[in-house]
Design a protein around this nucleic acid. Structure first.
Lengths: 244, 244
DNA sequence: AAGCTCAAGTTACCATACTAGTGTCCCGCG
DNA sequence: CGCGGGACACTAGTATGGTAACTTGAGCTT
Protein backbone atom coordinates (compact mmCIF):
# COMPACT_ATOMS: atom_id res chain seq x y z
CA UNK A 1 0.00 0.00 0.00
CA UNK A 2 1.50 3.27 -1.15
CA UNK A 3 5.15 2.46 -1.62
CA UNK A 4 6.29 6.00 -1.19
CA UNK A 5 7.41 8.50 1.35
CA UNK A 6 4.84 11.10 2.19
CA UNK A 7 5.25 14.55 3.63
CA UNK A 8 2.65 16.71 5.26
CA UNK A 9 3.07 19.52 7.74
CA UNK A 10 6.37 18.15 8.91
CA UNK A 11 4.76 14.76 9.19
CA UNK A 12 6.70 12.09 7.36
CA UNK A 13 5.73 8.47 7.51
CA UNK A 14 7.40 5.77 5.48
CA UNK A 15 4.95 3.09 4.43
CA UNK A 16 7.30 1.23 2.15
CA UNK A 17 8.95 -1.49 4.24
CA UNK A 18 5.82 -2.18 6.22
CA UNK A 19 4.12 -5.35 7.20
CA UNK A 20 3.13 -3.45 10.31
CA UNK A 21 -0.43 -2.14 10.51
CA UNK A 22 -0.76 1.35 9.10
CA UNK A 23 -2.60 2.53 12.19
CA UNK A 24 0.42 1.78 14.37
CA UNK A 25 2.78 3.54 11.98
CA UNK A 26 0.58 6.60 11.90
CA UNK A 27 0.42 6.62 15.69
CA UNK A 28 4.21 6.46 15.92
CA UNK A 29 4.65 9.15 13.31
CA UNK A 30 2.15 11.48 14.92
CA UNK A 31 3.57 10.89 18.37
CA UNK A 32 7.02 11.75 17.13
CA UNK A 33 5.74 14.83 15.34
CA UNK A 34 3.99 16.00 18.50
CA UNK A 35 6.81 15.20 20.89
CA UNK A 36 9.34 16.92 18.64
CA UNK A 37 7.01 19.89 18.49
CA UNK A 38 6.72 19.79 14.71
CA UNK A 39 3.02 19.96 15.47
CA UNK A 40 2.48 22.81 17.86
CA UNK A 41 0.53 22.41 21.08
CA UNK A 42 -2.94 23.90 20.69
CA UNK A 43 -3.18 22.99 17.03
CA UNK A 44 -6.33 21.29 15.78
CA UNK A 45 -6.06 17.97 13.98
CA UNK A 46 -8.59 16.43 11.64
CA UNK A 47 -8.95 12.77 10.79
CA UNK A 48 -9.97 13.78 7.32
CA UNK A 49 -7.08 16.14 6.75
CA UNK A 50 -4.35 13.81 8.00
CA UNK A 51 -5.84 10.88 6.12
CA UNK A 52 -5.91 12.64 2.78
CA UNK A 53 -2.45 14.12 3.26
CA UNK A 54 -1.08 10.66 3.95
CA UNK A 55 -3.14 9.12 1.17
CA UNK A 56 -4.88 6.63 3.43
CA UNK A 57 -8.37 6.32 4.84
CA UNK A 58 -9.68 7.90 8.02
CA UNK A 59 -9.95 4.64 9.92
CA UNK A 60 -6.26 4.10 10.76
CA UNK A 61 -5.91 7.78 11.57
CA UNK A 62 -8.81 7.50 13.95
CA UNK A 63 -7.19 4.58 15.75
CA UNK A 64 -3.96 6.52 15.98
CA UNK A 65 -5.84 9.45 17.52
CA UNK A 66 -7.33 7.15 20.12
CA UNK A 67 -3.87 5.91 21.09
CA UNK A 68 -2.53 9.44 21.36
CA UNK A 69 -5.57 10.40 23.37
CA UNK A 70 -4.80 7.70 25.91
CA UNK A 71 -1.24 8.96 26.10
CA UNK A 72 -2.64 12.39 26.90
CA UNK A 73 -1.03 14.05 23.90
CA UNK A 74 -4.27 14.97 22.17
CA UNK A 75 -7.72 15.70 23.48
CA UNK A 76 -10.39 14.12 21.34
CA UNK A 77 -13.74 15.84 21.74
CA UNK A 78 -16.66 13.86 20.30
CA UNK A 79 -18.39 15.51 17.37
CA UNK A 80 -16.15 18.56 17.75
CA UNK A 81 -12.60 17.81 16.89
CA UNK A 82 -9.23 16.72 18.13
CA UNK A 83 -6.61 19.07 19.39
CA UNK A 84 -3.01 18.74 20.46
CA UNK A 85 -2.98 19.54 24.14
CA UNK A 86 -0.56 22.11 25.39
CA UNK A 87 2.17 21.07 27.76
CA UNK A 88 0.77 21.02 31.24
CA UNK A 89 3.12 21.43 34.16
CA UNK A 90 0.79 19.31 36.26
CA UNK A 91 0.75 16.54 33.67
CA UNK A 92 4.52 16.60 33.37
CA UNK A 93 4.93 16.42 37.13
CA UNK A 94 2.40 13.59 37.34
CA UNK A 95 4.27 11.64 34.69
CA UNK A 96 7.50 12.29 36.53
CA UNK A 97 5.95 11.02 39.75
CA UNK A 98 5.00 7.75 38.06
CA UNK A 99 8.39 7.39 36.43
CA UNK A 100 10.18 8.00 39.69
CA UNK A 101 8.09 5.41 41.48
CA UNK A 102 8.50 2.75 38.82
CA UNK A 103 12.06 3.38 37.75
CA UNK A 104 13.44 3.64 41.26
CA UNK A 105 11.90 0.24 41.94
CA UNK A 106 13.42 -0.99 38.69
CA UNK A 107 16.85 0.33 39.68
CA UNK A 108 16.58 -1.36 43.06
CA UNK A 109 15.61 -4.64 41.46
CA UNK A 110 18.38 -4.34 38.87
CA UNK A 111 20.94 -3.85 41.64
CA UNK A 112 19.69 -6.98 43.37
CA UNK A 113 19.85 -9.12 40.25
CA UNK A 114 23.03 -7.71 38.77
CA UNK A 115 25.68 -9.98 37.36
CA UNK A 116 28.69 -9.42 35.12
CA UNK A 117 26.84 -9.92 31.85
CA UNK A 118 24.01 -7.56 32.71
CA UNK A 119 26.40 -4.87 33.88
CA UNK A 120 28.30 -5.27 30.62
CA UNK A 121 25.13 -4.56 28.66
CA UNK A 122 24.66 -1.32 30.57
CA UNK A 123 28.27 -0.17 30.33
CA UNK A 124 28.14 -0.85 26.61
CA UNK A 125 25.10 1.43 26.34
CA UNK A 126 27.00 4.06 28.31
CA UNK A 127 29.88 3.87 25.86
CA UNK A 128 27.56 4.47 22.94
CA UNK A 129 26.02 7.43 24.75
CA UNK A 130 29.47 8.95 25.21
CA UNK A 131 30.24 8.43 21.54
CA UNK A 132 27.04 10.22 20.55
CA UNK A 133 27.90 13.03 22.92
CA UNK A 134 31.34 13.49 21.33
CA UNK A 135 29.69 13.45 17.90
CA UNK A 136 27.20 16.04 19.18
CA UNK A 137 24.40 13.90 17.75
CA UNK A 138 21.37 15.06 19.70
CA UNK A 139 18.89 12.77 18.03
CA UNK A 140 21.00 9.71 18.73
CA UNK A 141 21.38 10.76 22.35
CA UNK A 142 17.64 11.08 22.70
CA UNK A 143 17.18 7.55 21.36
CA UNK A 144 20.05 6.14 23.42
CA UNK A 145 18.65 7.63 26.60
CA UNK A 146 15.40 5.87 25.87
CA UNK A 147 17.22 2.62 25.18
CA UNK A 148 19.21 2.90 28.39
CA UNK A 149 16.09 3.08 30.51
CA UNK A 150 14.55 0.21 28.58
CA UNK A 151 17.66 -1.89 29.17
CA UNK A 152 17.46 -1.18 32.88
CA UNK A 153 13.97 -2.64 32.96
CA UNK A 154 15.21 -5.71 31.13
CA UNK A 155 18.15 -6.14 33.44
CA UNK A 156 15.79 -5.89 36.39
CA UNK A 157 13.75 -8.71 34.89
CA UNK A 158 10.73 -6.41 34.56
CA UNK A 159 10.53 -5.62 30.85
CA UNK A 160 6.85 -4.84 31.24
CA UNK A 161 7.78 -1.93 33.49
CA UNK A 162 9.12 -0.25 30.39
CA UNK A 163 5.70 -0.43 28.77
CA UNK A 164 4.26 1.59 31.62
CA UNK A 165 7.02 4.13 31.31
CA UNK A 166 6.36 4.41 27.59
CA UNK A 167 2.75 5.25 28.35
CA UNK A 168 3.52 8.20 30.59
CA UNK A 169 6.80 9.35 29.10
CA UNK A 170 5.51 11.32 26.08
CA UNK A 171 4.32 14.05 28.40
CA UNK A 172 7.87 14.56 29.61
CA UNK A 173 9.43 14.09 26.19
CA UNK A 174 8.23 17.40 24.82
CA UNK A 175 9.96 19.12 27.72
CA UNK A 176 13.07 17.02 27.20
CA UNK A 177 13.02 18.07 23.58
CA UNK A 178 12.97 21.73 24.56
CA UNK A 179 15.77 20.98 26.97
CA UNK A 180 17.92 19.67 24.19
CA UNK A 181 17.06 22.58 21.96
CA UNK A 182 18.36 24.83 24.70
CA UNK A 183 21.53 22.76 24.65
CA UNK A 184 21.41 21.79 28.30
CA UNK A 185 24.62 19.84 28.79
CA UNK A 186 23.82 16.22 28.13
CA UNK A 187 27.06 15.27 29.79
CA UNK A 188 25.28 15.67 33.10
CA UNK A 189 22.63 13.15 32.04
CA UNK A 190 25.28 10.65 31.01
CA UNK A 191 27.14 11.12 34.27
CA UNK A 192 23.92 10.33 36.10
CA UNK A 193 23.45 7.22 34.00
CA UNK A 194 26.97 6.20 34.89
CA UNK A 195 26.27 6.64 38.58
CA UNK A 196 23.21 4.41 38.27
CA UNK A 197 25.21 1.71 36.51
CA UNK A 198 27.94 1.95 39.12
CA UNK A 199 25.46 1.47 41.94
CA UNK A 200 23.95 -1.52 40.17
CA UNK A 201 27.37 -3.03 39.56
CA UNK A 202 28.08 -2.56 43.27
CA UNK A 203 24.83 -4.40 44.02
CA UNK A 204 23.68 -1.50 46.15
CA UNK A 205 19.88 -1.19 45.69
CA UNK A 206 19.50 1.85 47.90
CA UNK A 207 22.19 3.76 46.08
CA UNK A 208 20.80 2.73 42.70
CA UNK A 209 17.35 4.02 43.61
CA UNK A 210 18.80 7.24 44.96
CA UNK A 211 20.82 7.77 41.80
CA UNK A 212 17.74 7.17 39.68
CA UNK A 213 15.72 9.58 41.77
CA UNK A 214 18.35 12.26 41.36
CA UNK A 215 18.37 11.61 37.63
CA UNK A 216 14.61 11.93 37.31
CA UNK A 217 14.52 15.04 39.46
CA UNK A 218 16.61 16.87 36.89
CA UNK A 219 13.60 17.76 34.74
CA UNK A 220 12.02 19.69 37.61
CA UNK A 221 14.86 22.16 37.40
CA UNK A 222 14.38 23.04 33.76
CA UNK A 223 10.57 22.88 33.75
CA UNK A 224 9.88 26.31 35.26
CA UNK A 225 12.48 27.99 33.07
CA UNK A 226 11.05 26.44 29.92
CA UNK A 227 7.48 27.26 30.88
CA UNK A 228 8.66 30.81 31.30
CA UNK A 229 10.58 30.98 28.04
CA UNK A 230 7.94 29.30 25.85
CA UNK A 231 4.64 30.30 27.43
CA UNK A 232 2.74 29.68 24.19
CA UNK A 233 3.55 25.97 24.42
CA UNK A 234 2.24 25.61 27.95
CA UNK A 235 -1.20 25.55 29.42
CA UNK A 236 -1.97 28.68 31.34
CA UNK A 237 -2.03 27.77 35.00
CA UNK A 238 -5.59 28.12 36.19
CA UNK A 239 -6.00 28.77 39.88
CA UNK A 240 -8.15 25.69 40.21
CA UNK A 241 -9.56 24.51 43.48
CA UNK A 242 -8.68 20.93 44.18
CA UNK A 243 -11.73 18.64 44.46
CA UNK A 244 -10.34 17.31 47.71
CA UNK B 1 -29.15 2.95 19.50
CA UNK B 2 -30.65 -0.35 20.56
CA UNK B 3 -32.67 0.52 23.62
CA UNK B 4 -32.49 -2.90 25.07
CA UNK B 5 -30.41 -5.15 27.20
CA UNK B 6 -28.53 -7.78 25.33
CA UNK B 7 -27.18 -11.08 26.48
CA UNK B 8 -24.58 -13.21 24.84
CA UNK B 9 -22.28 -15.79 26.35
CA UNK B 10 -22.57 -14.23 29.74
CA UNK B 11 -21.91 -10.86 28.17
CA UNK B 12 -24.48 -8.26 29.09
CA UNK B 13 -24.14 -4.68 28.04
CA UNK B 14 -26.78 -2.06 28.57
CA UNK B 15 -26.84 0.46 25.74
CA UNK B 16 -29.99 2.24 26.83
CA UNK B 17 -28.93 5.17 29.03
CA UNK B 18 -25.80 5.88 27.07
CA UNK B 19 -24.39 9.00 25.58
CA UNK B 20 -21.03 7.30 26.02
CA UNK B 21 -19.37 5.91 22.90
CA UNK B 22 -20.38 2.33 22.25
CA UNK B 23 -16.77 1.26 21.84
CA UNK B 24 -16.01 2.24 25.41
CA UNK B 25 -19.05 0.46 26.76
CA UNK B 26 -18.15 -2.68 24.89
CA UNK B 27 -14.59 -2.48 26.22
CA UNK B 28 -15.88 -2.16 29.77
CA UNK B 29 -18.34 -4.98 29.33
CA UNK B 30 -15.79 -7.30 27.82
CA UNK B 31 -13.19 -6.43 30.42
CA UNK B 32 -15.63 -7.23 33.17
CA UNK B 33 -16.63 -10.47 31.51
CA UNK B 34 -13.00 -11.51 31.19
CA UNK B 35 -11.95 -10.43 34.65
CA UNK B 36 -14.92 -12.19 36.22
CA UNK B 37 -14.02 -15.26 34.22
CA UNK B 38 -17.38 -15.43 32.48
CA UNK B 39 -15.21 -15.71 29.40
CA UNK B 40 -12.66 -18.42 30.02
CA UNK B 41 -8.95 -17.85 29.44
CA UNK B 42 -7.88 -19.55 26.23
CA UNK B 43 -11.20 -18.92 24.54
CA UNK B 44 -11.22 -17.44 21.05
CA UNK B 45 -13.16 -14.25 20.41
CA UNK B 46 -14.43 -13.01 17.08
CA UNK B 47 -15.15 -9.40 16.24
CA UNK B 48 -17.91 -10.57 13.94
CA UNK B 49 -19.52 -12.87 16.48
CA UNK B 50 -19.53 -10.37 19.33
CA UNK B 51 -20.76 -7.61 17.04
CA UNK B 52 -23.73 -9.56 15.75
CA UNK B 53 -24.62 -10.86 19.20
CA UNK B 54 -24.67 -7.30 20.50
CA UNK B 55 -26.45 -6.05 17.40
CA UNK B 56 -23.75 -3.54 16.54
CA UNK B 57 -21.08 -3.32 13.90
CA UNK B 58 -17.56 -4.68 14.03
CA UNK B 59 -15.93 -1.31 14.39
CA UNK B 60 -16.64 -0.59 18.06
CA UNK B 61 -15.87 -4.20 18.93
CA UNK B 62 -12.56 -3.87 17.17
CA UNK B 63 -11.66 -0.78 19.13
CA UNK B 64 -12.61 -2.55 22.34
CA UNK B 65 -10.35 -5.45 21.39
CA UNK B 66 -7.48 -3.04 20.85
CA UNK B 67 -7.97 -1.61 24.32
CA UNK B 68 -8.10 -5.05 25.89
CA UNK B 69 -5.04 -6.01 23.93
CA UNK B 70 -3.12 -3.12 25.43
CA UNK B 71 -4.26 -4.20 28.87
CA UNK B 72 -2.83 -7.63 28.11
CA UNK B 73 -6.14 -9.41 28.55
CA UNK B 74 -6.42 -10.59 24.95
CA UNK B 75 -3.86 -11.37 22.33
CA UNK B 76 -4.89 -10.08 18.95
CA UNK B 77 -3.18 -11.95 16.12
CA UNK B 78 -3.50 -10.25 12.72
CA UNK B 79 -5.50 -12.22 10.14
CA UNK B 80 -5.82 -15.10 12.60
CA UNK B 81 -8.00 -14.17 15.47
CA UNK B 82 -8.15 -12.83 18.98
CA UNK B 83 -7.87 -14.97 22.03
CA UNK B 84 -8.33 -14.40 25.73
CA UNK B 85 -4.90 -14.95 27.22
CA UNK B 86 -4.57 -17.33 30.09
CA UNK B 87 -3.52 -15.99 33.45
CA UNK B 88 0.23 -15.78 33.51
CA UNK B 89 2.01 -15.89 36.83
CA UNK B 90 4.75 -13.74 35.35
CA UNK B 91 2.26 -11.16 34.10
CA UNK B 92 0.51 -11.06 37.46
CA UNK B 93 3.80 -10.61 39.28
CA UNK B 94 4.85 -7.89 36.83
CA UNK B 95 1.59 -6.04 37.38
CA UNK B 96 2.04 -6.41 41.11
CA UNK B 97 5.55 -4.99 40.85
CA UNK B 98 4.21 -1.90 39.09
CA UNK B 99 1.37 -1.49 41.54
CA UNK B 100 3.70 -1.79 44.49
CA UNK B 101 6.05 0.82 43.07
CA UNK B 102 3.32 3.30 42.24
CA UNK B 103 0.95 2.76 45.13
CA UNK B 104 3.66 2.82 47.78
CA UNK B 105 4.72 6.17 46.39
CA UNK B 106 1.08 7.24 46.45
CA UNK B 107 0.71 6.15 50.06
CA UNK B 108 3.85 8.05 51.02
CA UNK B 109 2.60 11.18 49.29
CA UNK B 110 -0.85 10.83 50.83
CA UNK B 111 0.71 10.65 54.28
CA UNK B 112 2.65 13.83 53.59
CA UNK B 113 -0.38 15.75 52.37
CA UNK B 114 -2.92 14.39 54.81
CA UNK B 115 -5.36 16.67 56.53
CA UNK B 116 -8.59 16.11 58.43
CA UNK B 117 -10.89 16.28 55.45
CA UNK B 118 -8.87 13.87 53.35
CA UNK B 119 -8.60 11.37 56.19
CA UNK B 120 -12.36 11.62 56.64
CA UNK B 121 -12.89 10.64 53.02
CA UNK B 122 -10.82 7.53 53.57
CA UNK B 123 -12.40 6.52 56.86
CA UNK B 124 -15.79 6.93 55.25
CA UNK B 125 -14.76 4.51 52.52
CA UNK B 126 -13.58 2.11 55.21
CA UNK B 127 -16.97 2.26 56.89
CA UNK B 128 -18.70 1.36 53.66
CA UNK B 129 -16.31 -1.53 53.18
CA UNK B 130 -17.16 -2.86 56.61
CA UNK B 131 -20.86 -2.58 55.86
CA UNK B 132 -20.43 -4.56 52.65
CA UNK B 133 -18.45 -7.16 54.56
CA UNK B 134 -21.23 -7.60 57.12
CA UNK B 135 -23.73 -7.87 54.28
CA UNK B 136 -21.46 -10.46 52.68
CA UNK B 137 -21.78 -8.57 49.41
CA UNK B 138 -18.74 -9.72 47.46
CA UNK B 139 -19.41 -7.66 44.37
CA UNK B 140 -19.74 -4.47 46.37
CA UNK B 141 -16.52 -5.24 48.23
CA UNK B 142 -14.71 -5.71 44.95
CA UNK B 143 -15.91 -2.31 43.76
CA UNK B 144 -15.22 -0.63 47.09
CA UNK B 145 -11.68 -1.97 47.15
CA UNK B 146 -11.17 -0.41 43.76
CA UNK B 147 -12.66 2.87 44.93
CA UNK B 148 -10.48 2.91 48.03
CA UNK B 149 -7.30 2.74 46.01
CA UNK B 150 -8.58 5.38 43.63
CA UNK B 151 -9.37 7.67 46.56
CA UNK B 152 -5.85 7.20 47.87
CA UNK B 153 -4.48 8.50 44.59
CA UNK B 154 -6.78 11.51 44.81
CA UNK B 155 -5.84 12.23 48.39
CA UNK B 156 -2.18 12.07 47.38
CA UNK B 157 -2.90 14.68 44.74
CA UNK B 158 -1.91 12.24 42.00
CA UNK B 159 -5.20 11.18 40.42
CA UNK B 160 -3.37 10.24 37.24
CA UNK B 161 -1.54 7.56 39.17
CA UNK B 162 -4.82 5.71 39.33
CA UNK B 163 -4.99 5.63 35.53
CA UNK B 164 -1.71 3.77 35.47
CA UNK B 165 -2.95 1.32 38.07
CA UNK B 166 -6.10 0.75 36.04
CA UNK B 167 -3.94 -0.19 33.07
CA UNK B 168 -2.05 -2.94 34.86
CA UNK B 169 -4.64 -4.04 37.38
CA UNK B 170 -6.81 -6.25 35.17
CA UNK B 171 -4.08 -8.87 35.16
CA UNK B 172 -4.36 -9.14 38.92
CA UNK B 173 -8.12 -8.85 39.00
CA UNK B 174 -8.77 -12.29 37.61
CA UNK B 175 -6.71 -13.73 40.44
CA UNK B 176 -8.50 -11.54 42.95
CA UNK B 177 -11.76 -12.83 41.58
CA UNK B 178 -10.67 -16.41 42.15
CA UNK B 179 -9.58 -15.37 45.62
CA UNK B 180 -13.05 -14.15 46.42
CA UNK B 181 -14.61 -17.26 44.97
CA UNK B 182 -12.48 -19.24 47.37
CA UNK B 183 -13.86 -17.05 50.11
CA UNK B 184 -10.52 -15.79 51.34
CA UNK B 185 -11.43 -13.66 54.34
CA UNK B 186 -11.91 -10.14 53.09
CA UNK B 187 -11.71 -8.96 56.66
CA UNK B 188 -7.94 -9.20 56.31
CA UNK B 189 -8.01 -6.90 53.31
CA UNK B 190 -10.10 -4.34 55.16
CA UNK B 191 -7.81 -4.50 58.17
CA UNK B 192 -4.89 -3.74 55.89
CA UNK B 193 -6.79 -0.81 54.40
CA UNK B 194 -7.41 0.45 57.92
CA UNK B 195 -3.71 0.22 58.75
CA UNK B 196 -2.90 2.28 55.65
CA UNK B 197 -5.42 4.94 56.61
CA UNK B 198 -4.08 5.02 60.13
CA UNK B 199 -0.54 5.58 58.92
CA UNK B 200 -1.72 8.36 56.65
CA UNK B 201 -3.69 9.99 59.45
CA UNK B 202 -0.54 9.81 61.59
CA UNK B 203 1.35 11.54 58.75
CA UNK B 204 3.89 8.74 58.72
CA UNK B 205 4.97 8.23 55.09
CA UNK B 206 7.29 5.33 55.79
CA UNK B 207 4.65 3.42 57.70
CA UNK B 208 2.04 4.14 55.04
CA UNK B 209 4.28 2.79 52.32
CA UNK B 210 5.11 -0.27 54.38
CA UNK B 211 1.44 -0.93 55.05
CA UNK B 212 0.67 -0.62 51.36
CA UNK B 213 3.49 -2.96 50.49
CA UNK B 214 2.22 -5.54 52.94
CA UNK B 215 -1.25 -5.16 51.46
CA UNK B 216 -0.06 -5.67 47.90
CA UNK B 217 2.11 -8.62 48.86
CA UNK B 218 -0.98 -10.54 49.92
CA UNK B 219 -1.74 -11.71 46.40
CA UNK B 220 1.60 -13.50 46.18
CA UNK B 221 0.43 -15.87 48.89
CA UNK B 222 -2.68 -17.01 47.10
CA UNK B 223 -1.22 -17.03 43.60
CA UNK B 224 0.59 -20.40 43.79
CA UNK B 225 -2.37 -22.08 45.45
CA UNK B 226 -4.78 -20.83 42.81
CA UNK B 227 -2.44 -21.74 39.95
CA UNK B 228 -2.37 -25.19 41.45
CA UNK B 229 -6.10 -25.49 41.94
CA UNK B 230 -7.17 -24.08 38.57
CA UNK B 231 -4.37 -25.13 36.21
CA UNK B 232 -6.62 -24.81 33.17
CA UNK B 233 -6.91 -21.07 33.74
CA UNK B 234 -3.16 -20.53 33.90
CA UNK B 235 -0.46 -20.52 31.31
CA UNK B 236 1.77 -23.54 31.59
CA UNK B 237 5.11 -22.39 32.90
CA UNK B 238 7.62 -22.84 30.11
CA UNK B 239 11.20 -23.26 31.22
CA UNK B 240 12.25 -20.32 29.14
CA UNK B 241 15.73 -18.94 29.05
CA UNK B 242 15.84 -15.27 29.89
CA UNK B 243 17.19 -13.10 27.03
CA UNK B 244 19.58 -11.46 29.46
C1' DA C 1 -28.34 47.22 20.75
C1' DA C 2 -28.63 42.82 23.08
C1' DG C 3 -30.29 38.28 23.09
C1' DC C 4 -32.43 34.37 20.92
C1' DT C 5 -33.34 31.14 16.97
C1' DC C 6 -32.00 28.52 13.53
C1' DA C 7 -29.59 27.00 9.51
C1' DA C 8 -25.19 25.72 7.57
C1' DG C 9 -20.90 23.52 8.03
C1' DT C 10 -17.72 20.55 10.36
C1' DT C 11 -16.66 16.88 13.36
C1' DA C 12 -16.14 12.20 15.38
C1' DC C 13 -18.83 7.97 15.62
C1' DC C 14 -20.83 4.00 13.67
C1' DA C 15 -22.17 0.91 9.83
C1' DT C 16 -21.08 -1.48 5.73
C1' DA C 17 -18.13 -3.23 2.09
C1' DC C 18 -13.88 -4.83 0.47
C1' DT C 19 -8.90 -6.63 0.76
C1' DA C 20 -5.40 -9.53 1.98
C1' DG C 21 -3.38 -12.76 4.87
C1' DT C 22 -3.80 -17.34 7.53
C1' DG C 23 -5.19 -21.87 8.93
C1' DT C 24 -7.93 -26.12 7.54
C1' DC C 25 -9.75 -29.78 5.18
C1' DC C 26 -10.21 -32.68 1.53
C1' DC C 27 -8.80 -34.68 -2.61
C1' DG C 28 -5.54 -36.66 -5.60
C1' DC C 29 -0.99 -38.34 -6.19
C1' DG C 30 3.09 -41.02 -5.01
C1' DC D 1 -1.44 -45.54 3.51
C1' DG D 2 1.04 -41.16 3.90
C1' DC D 3 1.76 -36.73 2.04
C1' DG D 4 1.57 -32.50 -0.72
C1' DG D 5 -1.36 -29.01 -2.90
C1' DG D 6 -5.17 -26.20 -3.67
C1' DA D 7 -9.79 -24.46 -2.81
C1' DC D 8 -12.29 -22.73 0.94
C1' DA D 9 -13.70 -20.61 5.17
C1' DC D 10 -12.39 -17.99 8.32
C1' DT D 11 -9.73 -13.76 10.34
C1' DA D 12 -8.21 -8.75 11.16
C1' DG D 13 -7.02 -4.59 8.52
C1' DT D 14 -8.56 -0.96 5.64
C1' DA D 15 -11.71 1.89 2.81
C1' DT D 16 -15.90 4.42 2.34
C1' DG D 17 -20.52 6.16 3.22
C1' DG D 18 -24.14 7.75 6.36
C1' DT D 19 -25.59 10.05 10.80
C1' DA D 20 -26.12 12.63 15.02
C1' DA D 21 -23.99 16.06 17.73
C1' DC D 22 -21.77 20.30 18.27
C1' DT D 23 -19.96 25.09 16.90
C1' DT D 24 -20.70 29.17 14.65
C1' DG D 25 -22.58 33.11 12.84
C1' DA D 26 -26.19 35.46 10.51
C1' DG D 27 -30.80 37.17 10.83
C1' DC D 28 -34.71 38.00 13.48
C1' DT D 29 -37.19 39.53 17.62
C1' DT D 30 -37.61 42.27 21.69
Amino acid sequence: MLDQRLMADGLAIDFSHSSEPIARQVARGLRHAIVSLQIRPGEMLSEQEIASKLGISRQPVREAFIKLGEAGLVRIMPQRGTLVVKISRAAVEDARFIREAVECAVAREAARRADAKKVAVLTDSLARQRRALRAKDGGALFALDEEFHRLLAEVAGRPSAWNVIEDVKPQMDRVRYLDMADAIPMSIVIAQHAEIVEAIAAKDPGRAAAAMQAHLTEILRSLPKLADRYPELFEEVTAETSPL
